[in-house]
Design a protein around this nucleic acid. Structure first.
Length: 603
RNA sequence: AGGGGAUUGGUGUAAUCGGUAGCACGACUGAUUCUGGUUCAGUUAGUUGGGGUUCGAGUCCCUAAUCCCCUGCCA
């Protein structure tokens, strides 16, 4: 279980708020004005991994419950034994908790309600609202008609009630083969809404269920089961995606059918709770696919390393990637809740991640592609082998995060990309004859470029002892202050820790993967992963107690995340980082920093 | 003989009873900066089309267009 969400999910009023506000004002669920009656749920089917689209649903449903002071429930809609597995129950439970979707009480399962659903189904048969149909699946399909033509009644539609009750009981007892009979609701075969043309309520499936085992031989269909699950749990607002809009009349019909004839003194008992179904548009990010089938193809064909490969849009992948649940929720809130089939700029998610991590991630210095820098005058101002410890700010956004010590010596490593032999005018970093600040270190001037063929292999530089800590030197006799335009990151080679860094980029190069050819594989980004096997990280990189104490670096999921200065946000990969000392930890790049130089250089 | 839903700058999203079309992201300027980050200031750009009602329409009426969903014993 996790804590309540932070202010990032603070309400942004949308149409569902308005619906709920009205219900509360009119007292639809109880005393007018009582906001705490609001109950929502997240009802995943345990047949796969959760993805970013589900995050929107979790954020919405959980957020509403929190905002109104009501309750949020996690319920598995496990009505199909052939597709569902315990493994998915476990991963989904973990993901919802990680997302901050704290639920009330125990996790619920639709399968726990099977007996109650069965009793209600018998009640519907007795009331003349349902019948056992012995037609084949093909016959039922043919009898349903088409979009423009009415369907035809099943020959079993008007069979005696007792026949249906008896057959239904025997279906339940396991007397019949899969597919040989179904229980159908008697609604309207001529309805323009196909969902109302005598929908199937139960089918025979002689399969082992991951929770109920061999107890059942019949399983309820979504339309029959879902509203009942909501009703049993006292859900007030059953929120789902747009494609279920056409199902709402059926959702309401089933509950109305159960309530038909119920009331004070009725043989059937009291009326049952009738939730309000409301539909919203699903999340639709650019550069992402969420189709379960296509994601599976990526895994099966080894285009990615698994369901939690940090390039995948699954929650478990985003977690490994270093995204925070707070950022994901902020994104889901930011894009709003409407009925419009929108397209959501993936950059907005990346931005939410930057936004969150800029405030919270401790800073460290890491050199991805080292270039050797020798300080030629290091021995002129003290012992040539000495190491000076410099003070570096842990998080400029949060002074309370404190500082740390980083070593500086005569041999350093800087980023290859921070040096250019033939630099354009606006290149502010190191170039022959140029001066640059080593952040929290000294100012250095490049005097000599050592090359092996075309490759630059070493820079020989002098440092200015008056710039210790990176500060500007004192003004000269005329009062002029020397300035330097660029500041770059670095590590002392002797003390640096070698690490493996995985630079992830978007999995697809097309905004709508597969749009051009029909196959998303064609739009795969060949550069979505670059493994840097030996990057160099400053030695005292572990999150400090001071950082944890003030919130910076204290991520409640326990994942260590950092900003590697000037590079981006990274996290320790829990899965690939070995426990044994001596092996290189693996860091994943969540997202780069914004880079206005790259933008300008690309022009 | 179909039914249901939707349409506001490049993107997303607001606008109480019909009364100044606002916010965020992006893009572009500039300032600040020991991260080409952050922050700050500014610029850019919109009511799907056509009619109508009205002093006044994103909002009401008529009409057209476009997009999404629906013919599983999946959810």
């Amino acid at each position: 279980m996790s804590e309540a969400p932070g202010p990032e999910t603070s309400p942004k009023r949308h149409f569902i708020h308005q619906i709920i506000d009205e219900h509360i004002a009119h007292g639809r669920w109880g005393t007018p004005g009582d906001r705490s009656v609001v109950r929502t749920r997240f009802p995943p089917e345990p047949n796969g991994y959760l993805h970013i689209g589900h995050a929107k649903s979790i954020t919405l449903n959980h957020g509403l419950a929190v905002e109104y002071g009501g309750a949020f429930i996690l319920r598995f809609d496990d009505t199909n034994p052939e597709k569902e597995e315990q493994e998915f129950v476990d991963s989904i439970t973990r993901d919802v908790a990680w997302m901050g979707g704290a639920w009330e009480g125990d996790v619920r399962f639709a399968s726990d309600y099977f007996h109650q659903m069965y009793d209600w189904a018998v009640e519907l048969i007795r009331k003349g609202f349902a019948y056992v149909d012995e037609q084949s699946a093909e016959q039922i399909r043919a009898g349903r008609g088409t979009l423009t033509e009415a369907g035809t009644d099943s020959p079993f539609r008007d069979r005696p009630v007792d026949d249906s009750v008896d057959l239904f009981a025997r279906m339940k007892a396991g007397e019949f083969a899969d597919g040989s009979k179904v229980l159908r609701a008697k609604v309207d075969m001529a309805s323009p809404n196909l969902n109302l043309r005598d929908p199937v309520m139960y089918r025979i499936v002689n399969a082992r269920h991951h929770r109920t085992g061999d107890e059942w031989h019949i399983y309820p269909m979504y339309d029959w089961a879902h509203g009942l699950e909501d009703s049993i749990e006292g859900i007030t607002n059953s929120i789902c995606t747009l494609e279920f809009e056409n199902h709402r009349p059926l959702y309401d019909w089933f509950i109305a059918a159960i309530n038909d004839g119920r009331g004070p003194g009725s043989e059937w008992g009291k009326a049952i709770h009738h939730p309000q179904q409301t539909e919203f548009a699903r999340l639709n990010p650019t550069f992402v696919i969420t189709s379960k089938r296509k994601l599976k193809q990526l895994v099966d064909e080894k285009h990615v390393e698994g369901w939690d490969d940090p390039r995948m849009p699954t929650i478990s992948a985003l977690r490994r990637r270093g995204y925070t649940p707070e950022a994901i929720r902020a994104f889901c809130t930011e894009i709003g809740t409407t009925k419009f089939n929108a397209s959501h700029d993936y950059g907005l998610l990346e931005n939410a991640v930057r936004d969150d991590l800029n405030k919270r991630a401790p800073r460290r210095m890491c050199v991805l592609r080292p270039l050797k820098v020798t300080i030629t005058n290091w021995g002129e101002h003290g012992d040539a082998d000495r190491v000076e410890w410099m003070e570096a700010v842990n998080n400029p956004e949060d002074d309370a995060a404190g500082t740390r010590q980083i070593p500086f010596g005569g041999t350093l490593s800087i980023e290859r990309a921070d040096f250019m032999e033939d630099a354009p005018k606006k290149f502010f970093r190191l170039k022959p004859g140029g001066e640059v600040r080593l952040r929290y270190g000294y100012w250095i001037t490049c005097n000599e470029v050592i090359k092996d063929g075309d490759e630059v292999v070493e820079l020989r530089c002098t440092y200015d002892p008056q710039t210790r800590g990176g500060d500007a030197p004192p003004p000269d006799a005329e009062g002029n202050v020397r300035k330097v335009k660029g500041t770059i990151h670095w590590v002392a080679t002797s003390h640096a820790v070698p690490i493996e860094v995985r630079l992830y980029d978007r999995l697809f190069t097309a905004e709508r993967p597969g749009k051009a050819t029909g196959n998303p594989i064609d739009d795969l980004n060949p550069e979505s992963l670059e493994v840097v096997e030996r990057a160099l990280l400053e030695p005292n990189w572990r999150t400090t107690d001071a950082e944890k104490a003030v919130g910076t670096g204290a991520f409640r999921d326990g994942i260590e995340r950092f900003q590697f200065e000037r590079l981006g946000y990274f996290c320790v990969d829990e899965k690939l980082t070995p426990d044994q000392a001596g092996d290189r930890p693996v860091f994943n790049r969540a997202v780069t920093l914004k880079d206005s130089w790259a933008k300008q250089a690309g022009k």
